[in-house]
Each structure stands twice: as structure tokens, then as C-alpha cells.
Simulated assay, not measured.
Amino acid sequence: MRLFRCPRCRAVAFIETVVCDACGLQMGLHPPTLSMRPAPEQGGDVEGTWWFPCSNRSWRCNWLAAADSGSGQCVSCRLTRTRPDNADTLALEKLATASADKRRLLVQLADLGLPLTPWHEKKGGLGFDLLSSRSSGNRVVIGHASGIVTIDLAESLDAHREALRISLGEPYRTMLGHFRHEVGHYYQWVLVEQTDWIAECRTLLGDERTSYSDAVARHYRTGAPRDWNEGYISEYATMHPWEDFAECFAHYLHLTSTLQTAASGSLTVRIEGVPHLPDGDVTPRSSYADATMDEILADWIPLATFLNRVNRAMGKGDLYPFGIVAPVARKLDFVHRVVTASRVETPFG
């Protein structure tokens, strides 16, 4: 992600920071500029508009809400259509954790210039149902339908999520990953299926009109093809063209976010004597809007190789345990071209 700083002392701040660790300033994220600003309880002027802390600040939301928005909630919290009842304090704790990942997702989408039309402003707009299968006793199916992304807050529990990851044979499973994958379904629906991009999408990823229910049943009955890694980014991507696009979209967000984070720290990776990689320095860019997918991957593969080595030095698994073969690179290129062609000036309106 981009580098955030305290607006008073310029100390480095995380995207989730509520109070500056260095000077104690109460701060909040200003959505239109994606920058940290002072967040006094009474609010303050930002470029001619009064902004105040989101009414969900007690649940660790650090975004600012515009006084003229008609709501005490920030734009991120207003995108949540359904949430646990106020009496369910355990679920609300998990809501606070998941909402931080949602805000991280929204910052990246806005940074990429993707349109963020809310569900409450337009039918089919983006919204989130954040529910907990642990609290409700009902099964919560993570997914997307007509603009609404449903997330199971139980996935915020490490033991629950890790058990599912192992049982499903997945190398990577995080709450942020769920958000990135499911919003990929939303953008395929909005930016591809309802536009002229759909013909190329069907050529590259297959016809999304084939039965999804049949594809799901087949996948869980027989699993992925044995040679799945010759054309797909993950086993799950083999299930149906919808899942292939969503997986590629999520990985596109993984790549660009990590590259931007490396760029914000002025990281340069020296590659020397690594098989299949040319010797030389790789310096990630803060933006790849004007780059080709080949250029993105030329920076990503050395960086991922280095970060995998870092993780192994700490006794952990690879940070990025995936391979990007030529067919996957072509799909990522398609996602990149759709994203860059769909940029808007003011994602948050």
C-alpha cells in the first residue's frame, strides 16, 4: 500500500492507525485524498468541507465522514449493508477486524481508480453483508450476488480459517484474500459482463454462461485437473470461468499492492545468480497504471522470490506460494487492461 504519515509529526502510520505512536495525535483517513488528517472529536475542515471521525471509531474505524453526507458513518462503513446485531459483542469484535481488511481493500481500489458506486445509491452497487456463522448458528456462504459481497466473520478466527485452509488444500487463505476475490466477481459483472470486454474474457477464461452449480458439484466431486498448474493460478480457479477471473483479479491486487508497498519503502532488490532471472537491480514503482503486464511481472517475480526467502528465514512458508505461467500471465494482462481502462477520477464520488 501507499505510505501513510502522521499529519503533525510525519511519523510513519499504518493504514489502520487511530492514534500516532510518536506524538499521540488522533488521526483519520480522508477518503477523497487517501491521506491521514487530524481527527478531533468535533471534526475539522479539509479542503473546504467539514469532516469528523466515523461514528464507528469505538470499533476501530479510523476513517473520516463528511458532514454533508447525511450519515455519521464513513463511506466504508456505509458500504456495509448487513452486520451482526449490537448485542452480539463477539461478532462485533470480528466485524472490527474484518472491517479493517475491507478498508484496506477500498483504499487499493480507489488508488487504482476503480469505480465504487455504493449499494444504497444505485441498484447493483457495491455493498457488503458481514455475517458470522459462529454467532448466528446459520451457515454463511462467502460469495457475491448482484453487487453484494457476503463474508463470514468467523474467518477472522485464525484456528477456523487455518482449519479450512488445510482441509481444502489451499496454500493461502486470508480475510483480505476473500475480500479481493469476491470483489473480483463484482468487477467482472460490472466492468466485463456488461461491456464489450466480455468477448475477449470468454476467449481467455471460458464461457461464464456454463452452469455454475454443475461446475461446483464437479469440482468438489473430482477436484481440479492433474495439470491445473499449467493454465491456472490455483486449483479453485479451475472450477468455473467466474472463479478463474476472480482468482486472477485477487492476485492482481496482491501483486500491485505488494509492489506499491515495496516502492513506498524505496526497496531495491538485487538479483544475481538466480535461475531464470536476469542479473540486475529491480526497483518497484509506486504505480503501474502506465505499465504493461510484462513490466509488472518483471518487477514482481524478483520481488516475490526475495520475499519468499525472507519468510523462509523466519521459518515460515513462502509469502507468495504461487507460480505464474504464460496462460496465467495472459489472464492477468487482461485484468490489468480492464482495470486501467476503467479508471475514474473520483472513485468515492
Score class of each variant (00 low, 15 high):
residue 1 M to R: 08
residue 5 R to I: 15
residue 6 C to Q: 08
residue 7 P to W: 07
residue 11 A to Y: 10
residue 17 T to N: 06
residue 17 T to E: 10
residue 21 D to W: 13
residue 21 D to C: 07
residue 21 D to S: 12
residue 25 L to N: 05
residue 28 G to T: 13
residue 30 H to D: 07
residue 32 P to D: 11
residue 36 M to P: 00
residue 51 W to Q: 06
residue 52 F to T: 00
residue 52 F to A: 11
residue 52 F to Y: 11
residue 52 F to D: 02
residue 53 P to T: 03
residue 53 P to M: 00
residue 55 S to D: 13
residue 56 N to G: 06
residue 57 R to Q: 01
residue 60 R to Y: 15
residue 61 C to P: 00
residue 63 W to H: 07
residue 72 G to E: 14
residue 72 G to V: 10
residue 73 Q to P: 02
residue 73 Q to H: 13
residue 74 C to S: 05
residue 81 R to T: 14
residue 82 T to W: 01
residue 84 P to R: 12
residue 89 T to H: 10
residue 90 L to S: 10
residue 97 T to I: 15
residue 98 A to L: 08
residue 100 A to V: 15
residue 100 A to F: 03
residue 109 L to M: 10
residue 110 A to P: 03
residue 110 A to W: 09
residue 111 D to Q: 12
residue 111 D to V: 08
residue 115 P to W: 01
residue 116 L to R: 00
residue 118 P to Y: 05
residue 119 W to A: 05
residue 122 K to Q: 14
residue 126 L to K: 04
residue 126 L to F: 13
residue 126 L to A: 09
residue 130 L to K: 02
residue 131 L to C: 02
residue 134 R to Y: 02
residue 136 S to I: 13
residue 138 N to T: 06
residue 141 V to Y: 09
residue 143 G to I: 08
residue 144 H to K: 06
residue 145 A to V: 12
residue 145 A to C: 07
residue 146 S to A: 12
residue 147 G to L: 05
residue 150 T to E: 02
residue 152 D to P: 00
residue 154 A to Y: 09
residue 154 A to W: 09
residue 155 E to D: 09
residue 159 A to Y: 15
residue 160 H to A: 13
residue 161 R to L: 03
residue 166 I to W: 00
residue 170 E to W: 09
residue 171 P to V: 15
residue 174 T to F: 07
residue 175 M to D: 00
residue 177 G to R: 03
residue 177 G to D: 07
residue 181 H to N: 13
residue 197 W to Q: 05
residue 198 I to Q: 09
residue 204 L to H: 02
residue 206 G to W: 00
residue 206 G to N: 01
residue 210 T to L: 00
residue 210 T to D: 00
residue 211 S to V: 09
residue 212 Y to R: 02
residue 213 S to I: 13
residue 214 D to N: 05
residue 217 A to L: 08
residue 217 A to C: 01
residue 220 Y to M: 06
residue 223 G to S: 09
residue 224 A to R: 06
residue 228 W to Q: 01
residue 229 N to D: 15
residue 229 N to A: 14
residue 230 E to V: 00
residue 232 Y to G: 05
residue 233 I to Y: 05
residue 235 E to I: 06
residue 238 T to C: 02
residue 239 M to C: 11
residue 239 M to A: 14
residue 243 E to D: 12
residue 244 D to E: 06
residue 245 F to D: 00
residue 245 F to M: 04
residue 248 C to S: 15
residue 248 C to N: 15
residue 252 Y to E: 02
residue 253 L to D: 01
residue 254 H to L: 10
residue 255 L to E: 10
residue 258 T to G: 06
residue 261 T to H: 06
residue 262 A to D: 15
residue 263 A to D: 11
residue 266 S to W: 07
residue 273 G to S: 11
residue 274 V to A: 03
residue 276 H to C: 09
residue 277 L to F: 08
residue 278 P to A: 09
residue 280 G to H: 09
residue 280 G to T: 03
residue 281 D to R: 14
residue 282 V to P: 02
residue 285 R to S: 04
residue 288 Y to I: 06
residue 292 T to P: 08
residue 298 A to N: 01
residue 298 A to R: 14
residue 300 W to R: 10
residue 304 A to K: 07
residue 304 A to W: 10
residue 305 T to C: 11
residue 310 V to D: 08
residue 318 D to S: 10
residue 323 G to F: 08
residue 324 I to E: 02
residue 324 I to L: 04
residue 326 A to H: 15
residue 330 R to C: 03
residue 331 K to N: 09
residue 332 L to N: 03
residue 332 L to I: 13
residue 336 H to R: 02
residue 338 V to Y: 12
residue 341 A to N: 09
residue 343 R to C: 04
residue 345 E to V: 14
residue 345 E to K: 13
